[in-house]
Protein backbone atom coordinates (compact mmCIF):
# COMPACT_ATOMS: atom_id res chain seq x y z
CA UNK A 1 0.00 0.00 0.00
CA UNK A 2 2.96 2.33 0.52
CA UNK A 3 3.59 4.80 -2.25
CA UNK A 4 0.02 4.67 -3.47
CA UNK A 5 -1.04 7.57 -1.29
CA UNK A 6 -2.53 10.63 -2.86
CA UNK A 7 0.29 13.12 -3.48
CA UNK A 8 -1.79 15.94 -2.03
CA UNK A 9 -3.63 14.00 0.61
CA UNK A 10 -2.47 14.17 4.19
CA UNK A 11 -1.36 10.64 4.63
CA UNK A 12 0.32 8.69 7.31
CA UNK A 13 1.96 6.31 4.87
CA UNK A 14 5.02 8.33 3.89
CA UNK A 15 6.27 9.35 7.27
CA UNK A 16 5.04 6.47 9.33
CA UNK A 17 4.98 3.36 7.29
CA UNK A 18 4.48 1.23 10.36
CA UNK A 19 1.00 2.59 10.86
CA UNK A 20 -0.38 1.09 7.67
CA UNK A 21 0.93 -2.26 8.75
CA UNK A 22 -1.02 -2.14 11.97
CA UNK A 23 -3.58 -4.87 11.73
CA UNK A 24 -7.12 -3.65 11.43
CA UNK A 25 -9.90 -6.04 12.13
CA UNK A 26 -12.42 -6.93 9.45
CA UNK A 27 -15.40 -5.62 11.49
CA UNK A 28 -13.60 -2.30 11.72
CA UNK A 29 -13.11 -2.15 7.95
CA UNK A 30 -16.78 -2.95 7.38
CA UNK A 31 -17.77 -0.24 9.82
CA UNK A 32 -15.40 2.21 8.16
CA UNK A 33 -16.77 1.66 4.67
CA UNK A 34 -20.37 1.72 5.89
CA UNK A 35 -19.83 5.01 7.70
CA UNK A 36 -17.97 6.61 4.80
CA UNK A 37 -20.54 5.48 2.24
CA UNK A 38 -23.31 6.90 4.42
CA UNK A 39 -21.46 10.22 4.59
CA UNK A 40 -20.96 10.15 0.82
CA UNK A 41 -24.67 9.53 0.28
CA UNK A 42 -25.61 12.49 2.50
CA UNK A 43 -23.02 14.61 0.69
CA UNK A 44 -24.23 13.72 -2.77
CA UNK A 45 -28.02 13.68 -2.45
CA UNK A 46 -28.48 17.48 -2.44
CA UNK A 47 -26.02 17.90 -5.31
CA UNK A 48 -27.50 15.12 -7.41
CA UNK A 49 -31.01 16.37 -6.76
CA UNK A 50 -30.08 19.73 -8.26
CA UNK A 51 -28.35 18.08 -11.22
CA UNK A 52 -31.41 15.94 -11.81
CA UNK A 53 -33.72 18.94 -11.47
CA UNK A 54 -31.71 20.90 -14.01
CA UNK A 55 -32.47 18.32 -16.69
CA UNK A 56 -36.14 17.75 -15.84
CA UNK A 57 -38.98 19.07 -17.98
CA UNK A 58 -41.51 21.23 -16.16
CA UNK A 59 -43.96 18.37 -15.64
CA UNK A 60 -41.50 16.53 -13.40
CA UNK A 61 -40.46 19.49 -11.22
CA UNK A 62 -42.73 18.78 -8.30
CA UNK A 63 -44.58 15.82 -6.97
CA UNK A 64 -48.05 17.32 -6.98
CA UNK A 65 -50.48 14.61 -7.90
CA UNK A 66 -47.77 12.22 -9.03
CA UNK A 67 -44.85 10.16 -7.89
CA UNK A 68 -41.71 12.14 -7.12
CA UNK A 69 -39.26 11.68 -9.98
CA UNK A 70 -35.75 11.12 -8.64
CA UNK A 71 -34.14 10.97 -12.04
CA UNK A 72 -35.52 12.79 -15.11
CA UNK A 73 -37.76 10.46 -17.13
CA UNK A 74 -37.54 12.72 -20.14
CA UNK A 75 -34.18 14.51 -19.80
CA UNK A 76 -34.16 17.87 -21.52
CA UNK A 77 -31.94 20.89 -22.04
CA UNK A 78 -34.97 23.18 -22.00
CA UNK A 79 -33.99 24.69 -18.63
CA UNK A 80 -30.61 25.76 -19.93
CA UNK A 81 -32.14 27.08 -23.13
CA UNK A 82 -34.68 28.98 -21.07
CA UNK A 83 -32.17 30.84 -18.90
CA UNK A 84 -30.26 31.83 -22.03
CA UNK A 85 -33.42 33.25 -23.53
CA UNK A 86 -34.32 30.68 -26.13
CA UNK A 87 -38.00 29.94 -26.18
CA UNK A 88 -38.80 26.60 -24.68
CA UNK A 89 -42.20 25.26 -25.63
CA UNK A 90 -43.54 24.31 -22.24
CA UNK A 91 -42.39 27.42 -20.35
CA UNK A 92 -44.78 30.17 -21.22
CA UNK A 93 -42.97 32.97 -19.42
CA UNK A 94 -40.25 35.06 -21.01
CA UNK A 95 -37.35 36.52 -19.07
CA UNK A 96 -36.82 40.24 -19.02
CA UNK A 97 -33.14 39.54 -19.23
CA UNK A 98 -31.21 36.34 -19.74
CA UNK A 99 -28.54 34.72 -17.60
CA UNK A 100 -25.80 35.86 -19.96
CA UNK A 101 -25.22 39.25 -18.36
CA UNK A 102 -25.26 37.88 -14.76
CA UNK A 103 -22.71 35.23 -15.75
CA UNK A 104 -20.56 37.96 -17.30
CA UNK A 105 -20.99 40.07 -14.16
CA UNK A 106 -19.99 37.20 -11.86
CA UNK A 107 -16.96 36.47 -14.01
CA UNK A 108 -15.76 40.05 -14.37
CA UNK A 109 -16.23 40.96 -10.71
CA UNK A 110 -14.67 37.73 -9.42
CA UNK A 111 -11.72 37.85 -11.85
CA UNK A 112 -10.87 41.49 -11.25
CA UNK A 113 -11.53 41.15 -7.53
CA UNK A 114 -8.98 38.34 -7.57
CA UNK A 115 -6.52 40.50 -9.51
CA UNK A 116 -6.85 43.29 -6.92
CA UNK A 117 -6.55 40.96 -3.91
CA UNK A 118 -3.65 39.00 -5.37
CA UNK A 119 -1.65 42.05 -6.51
CA UNK A 120 -1.97 43.95 -3.25
CA UNK A 121 -1.74 40.78 -1.17
CA UNK A 122 1.32 39.29 -2.87
CA UNK A 123 3.25 42.57 -2.80
CA UNK A 124 2.42 43.18 0.86
CA UNK A 125 3.20 39.58 1.81
CA UNK A 126 6.64 39.86 0.19
CA UNK A 127 7.25 43.21 1.86
CA UNK A 128 6.46 41.74 5.28
CA UNK A 129 8.15 38.39 4.73
CA UNK A 130 11.47 39.81 3.49
CA UNK A 131 11.76 43.34 4.86
CA UNK A 132 9.48 43.33 7.89
CA UNK A 133 7.34 46.16 6.52
CA UNK A 134 3.69 46.54 7.43
CA UNK A 135 3.74 44.79 10.80
CA UNK A 136 0.17 45.94 11.42
CA UNK A 137 -1.21 44.11 8.40
CA UNK A 138 -1.59 40.56 9.77
CA UNK A 139 -3.90 41.61 12.60
CA UNK A 140 -5.70 44.29 10.57
CA UNK A 141 -6.48 41.78 7.84
CA UNK A 142 -7.72 39.11 10.23
CA UNK A 143 -10.01 41.68 11.81
CA UNK A 144 -11.26 42.54 8.35
CA UNK A 145 -12.19 38.89 7.89
CA UNK A 146 -13.83 38.64 11.28
CA UNK A 147 -16.49 41.27 10.78
CA UNK A 148 -19.76 40.24 9.22
CA UNK A 149 -20.01 42.05 5.87
CA UNK A 150 -23.49 43.10 6.93
CA UNK A 151 -22.03 45.17 9.77
CA UNK A 152 -19.85 47.31 7.50
CA UNK A 153 -22.07 47.62 4.47
CA UNK A 154 -23.78 50.93 5.31
CA UNK A 155 -20.62 53.03 4.81
CA UNK A 156 -19.67 50.92 1.80
CA UNK A 157 -23.06 51.50 0.20
CA UNK A 158 -22.79 55.25 0.83
CA UNK A 159 -19.23 55.42 -0.48
CA UNK A 160 -20.02 53.30 -3.52
CA UNK A 161 -22.96 55.44 -4.48
CA UNK A 162 -20.81 58.56 -4.01
CA UNK A 163 -18.15 57.04 -6.31
CA UNK A 164 -20.88 55.99 -8.72
CA UNK A 165 -19.86 52.35 -8.26
CA UNK A 166 -23.34 51.04 -7.47
CA UNK A 167 -24.69 48.36 -9.75
CA UNK A 168 -21.44 47.86 -11.64
CA UNK A 169 -19.03 44.97 -11.97
CA UNK A 170 -16.07 47.22 -11.21
CA UNK A 171 -17.65 48.35 -7.96
CA UNK A 172 -18.12 44.72 -6.98
CA UNK A 173 -14.58 43.86 -8.08
CA UNK A 174 -13.16 46.54 -5.78
CA UNK A 175 -15.05 45.38 -2.69
CA UNK A 176 -14.30 41.71 -3.51
CA UNK A 177 -10.62 42.59 -3.81
CA UNK A 178 -10.70 44.10 -0.33
CA UNK A 179 -12.80 41.35 1.25
CA UNK A 180 -10.51 38.56 0.01
CA UNK A 181 -7.28 40.49 0.54
CA UNK A 182 -6.71 38.75 3.91
CA UNK A 183 -6.68 35.32 2.25
CA UNK A 184 -4.38 36.43 -0.58
CA UNK A 185 -2.02 38.09 1.89
CA UNK A 186 -1.84 35.24 4.39
CA UNK A 187 -1.50 32.51 1.79
CA UNK A 188 1.29 34.30 -0.05
CA UNK A 189 3.02 35.23 3.19
CA UNK A 190 3.29 31.60 4.25
CA UNK A 191 4.50 30.64 0.76
CA UNK A 192 7.20 33.34 0.87
CA UNK A 193 8.16 32.37 4.41
CA UNK A 194 8.65 28.76 3.31
CA UNK A 195 10.65 29.62 0.24
CA UNK A 196 14.42 29.08 0.45
CA UNK A 197 16.26 32.38 0.12
CA UNK A 198 19.58 31.20 -1.30
CA UNK A 199 18.66 31.97 -4.88
CA UNK A 200 17.48 35.47 -4.03
CA UNK A 201 20.67 36.09 -2.08
CA UNK A 202 22.82 34.81 -4.91
CA UNK A 203 21.11 37.22 -7.30
CA UNK A 204 21.69 40.08 -4.85
CA UNK A 205 25.36 39.24 -4.69
CA UNK A 206 25.40 39.29 -8.49
CA UNK A 207 24.23 42.91 -8.24
CA UNK A 208 20.51 42.62 -8.95
CA UNK A 209 18.33 45.24 -7.32
CA UNK A 210 15.85 43.94 -4.77
CA UNK A 211 12.90 44.89 -6.90
CA UNK A 212 14.41 43.01 -9.85
CA UNK A 213 14.98 39.97 -7.63
CA UNK A 214 11.30 40.07 -6.64
CA UNK A 215 9.88 40.49 -10.14
CA UNK A 216 12.37 38.43 -12.15
CA UNK A 217 13.34 35.63 -9.76
CA UNK A 218 10.90 35.25 -6.86
CA UNK A 219 7.62 35.69 -8.71
CA UNK A 220 8.46 33.31 -11.58
CA UNK A 221 9.59 30.71 -9.05
CA UNK A 222 6.32 31.09 -7.17
CA UNK A 223 4.12 30.58 -10.20
CA UNK A 224 2.43 27.44 -8.85
CA UNK A 225 1.66 28.81 -5.36
CA UNK A 226 0.45 32.05 -6.95
CA UNK A 227 -1.91 30.11 -9.17
CA UNK A 228 -3.28 28.11 -6.23
CA UNK A 229 -3.79 31.23 -4.13
CA UNK A 230 -5.49 32.99 -7.05
CA UNK A 231 -7.88 30.06 -7.55
CA UNK A 232 -8.66 30.02 -3.84
CA UNK A 233 -9.43 33.75 -3.85
CA UNK A 234 -11.44 33.40 -7.05
CA UNK A 235 -13.66 30.73 -5.46
CA UNK A 236 -14.36 33.04 -2.51
CA UNK A 237 -15.22 35.95 -4.80
CA UNK A 238 -17.36 33.80 -7.06
CA UNK A 239 -19.26 32.49 -4.01
CA UNK A 240 -20.46 35.86 -2.77
CA UNK A 241 -24.16 36.55 -2.53
CA UNK A 242 -24.74 39.17 0.18
CA UNK A 243 -22.47 41.91 -1.16
CA UNK A 244 -23.82 41.61 -4.69
CA UNK A 245 -27.33 41.62 -3.27
CA UNK A 246 -26.67 44.99 -1.64
CA UNK A 247 -24.54 46.64 -4.30
CA UNK A 248 -26.19 45.57 -7.54
CA UNK A 249 -29.79 46.12 -8.49
CA UNK A 250 -30.36 45.43 -12.16
CA UNK A 251 -27.66 45.93 -14.75
CA UNK A 252 -24.86 43.94 -13.17
CA UNK A 253 -26.53 41.48 -10.79
CA UNK A 254 -24.41 38.35 -10.31
CA UNK A 255 -25.56 34.76 -10.82
CA UNK A 256 -26.80 34.10 -7.25
CA UNK A 257 -28.75 37.37 -7.13
CA UNK A 258 -30.23 36.73 -10.55
CA UNK A 259 -31.06 33.16 -9.59
CA UNK A 260 -32.93 34.25 -6.48
CA UNK A 261 -35.01 36.65 -8.55
CA UNK A 262 -36.04 33.95 -11.01
CA UNK A 263 -39.62 33.19 -10.25
CA UNK A 264 -42.77 34.43 -11.80
CA UNK A 265 -46.31 34.97 -10.71
CA UNK A 266 -47.50 32.64 -13.44
CA UNK A 267 -45.36 29.59 -12.77
CA UNK A 268 -44.25 30.23 -9.21
CA UNK A 269 -40.78 28.91 -8.51
CA UNK A 270 -38.95 28.10 -11.73
CA UNK A 271 -37.29 25.08 -10.15
CA UNK A 272 -35.65 23.63 -13.23
CA UNK A 273 -34.38 26.94 -14.54
CA UNK A 274 -32.93 27.85 -11.17
CA UNK A 275 -31.32 24.44 -10.84
CA UNK A 276 -29.74 24.82 -14.28
CA UNK A 277 -28.33 28.17 -13.23
CA UNK A 278 -27.21 26.78 -9.87
CA UNK A 279 -25.36 24.05 -11.69
CA UNK A 280 -23.61 26.60 -13.89
CA UNK A 281 -22.60 28.55 -10.77
CA UNK A 282 -21.53 25.50 -8.79
CA UNK A 283 -19.35 23.69 -11.30
CA UNK A 284 -16.33 26.07 -11.62
CA UNK A 285 -15.54 26.36 -7.89
CA UNK A 286 -15.93 22.63 -7.27
CA UNK A 287 -13.47 21.79 -10.05
CA UNK A 288 -11.05 24.49 -8.94
CA UNK A 289 -11.40 23.45 -5.32
CA UNK A 290 -10.46 19.88 -6.11
CA UNK A 291 -7.52 21.16 -8.16
CA UNK A 292 -6.10 23.06 -5.18
CA UNK A 293 -7.01 20.52 -2.47
CA UNK A 294 -3.48 20.48 -1.08
CA UNK A 295 -3.60 24.19 -0.26
CA UNK A 296 -7.12 24.37 1.14
CA UNK A 297 -6.08 23.86 4.74
CA UNK A 298 -3.40 26.52 4.51
CA UNK A 299 -5.79 28.97 2.90
CA UNK A 300 -8.67 28.38 5.28
CA UNK A 301 -6.59 28.65 8.43
CA UNK A 302 -4.68 31.77 7.33
CA UNK A 303 -1.51 29.74 7.06
CA UNK A 304 -1.68 28.53 10.65
CA UNK A 305 -1.76 24.97 9.35
CA UNK A 306 0.21 23.88 6.35
CA UNK A 307 -0.92 20.29 5.99
Amino acid sequence: MEGRGHPFLPSASKRHQQSSQMKRSIPFEIFRYAAILAAIAVTLVPILWMVSMAFKPIGEWSATGAELTWWPKHPTLANFQFVFGESANDLIVALDHTALKPILSSLLSAVFGTVIAMSAGTAAAYGLSRFGSGQNLPLALIQLRLFPPMAVMIPVMIMWSFLNFNDSWWGLALIYGIVTLPFAFWLMKTFFDDMPREIEEAALVEGCSRLRVFTRITLPMMRAPLASAALFVFILNWSDYLIALLLTTREWVTIPVYMASLSSSMTGQLYGAKAALGLIAAVPPVIMGIAIQRHLVRGLTFGALKQ
Partner: peptide, 12 residues
Protein backbone atom coordinates in the same frame (compact mmCIF):
# COMPACT_ATOMS: atom_id res chain seq x y z
CA UNK B 1 -16.19 13.76 -2.75
CA UNK B 2 -16.53 14.56 0.94
CA UNK B 3 -14.94 17.98 0.42
CA UNK B 4 -17.39 19.01 -2.29
CA UNK B 5 -20.10 20.71 -0.18
CA UNK B 6 -17.77 23.43 1.08
CA UNK B 7 -16.94 24.39 -2.50
CA UNK B 8 -20.55 24.77 -3.59
CA UNK B 9 -21.56 28.44 -3.76
CA UNK B 10 -23.48 28.99 -0.48
CA UNK B 11 -26.40 30.64 -2.25
CA UNK B 12 -26.67 27.60 -4.52
Amino acid sequence: ILLMPMMVVPAV
